[in-house]
Amino acid sequence: MRLPTYADALLRIWHTDDPPGLRLSGQIDLTNQTALMGHLLALNGAPADVTVDLREVTFLNFAALHALVSYAELLGPGRRLVLHTRTSVVGQMLLACGWDRPELRLTLLEETSDE
């Protein structure tokens, strides 16, 4: 397995080629939310959808989600940000802020498992 391109006490980030994007593991909060934004911006602008795999993320703070939404808002036409998660709370936050509106280029894939 590839080494993470970013690692701290709470979070590890890998760049992925298939699908193009990022895979994250751990927790994202005030201490490392800028790392997520930095690595998003470092993705090269290939004319493709960007997938951020959050399935191994146990905590994603509100500001980090806001950063992801801002990134989606900046994507060019025809491209989408795909968020892959295992918790329903991401979807709840998107809904609460009107970030579920169709014109936003963001797709949420929820894999919620029953406990």
Binding site: L10, Q27, D29, L30
Partner: peptide, 8 residues
């Protein structure tokens, strides 16, 4: 900020 993870 370093205490947020422990708080959670």
């Amino acid at each position: 900020p370093q205490h947020l993870a422990q708080l959670r």
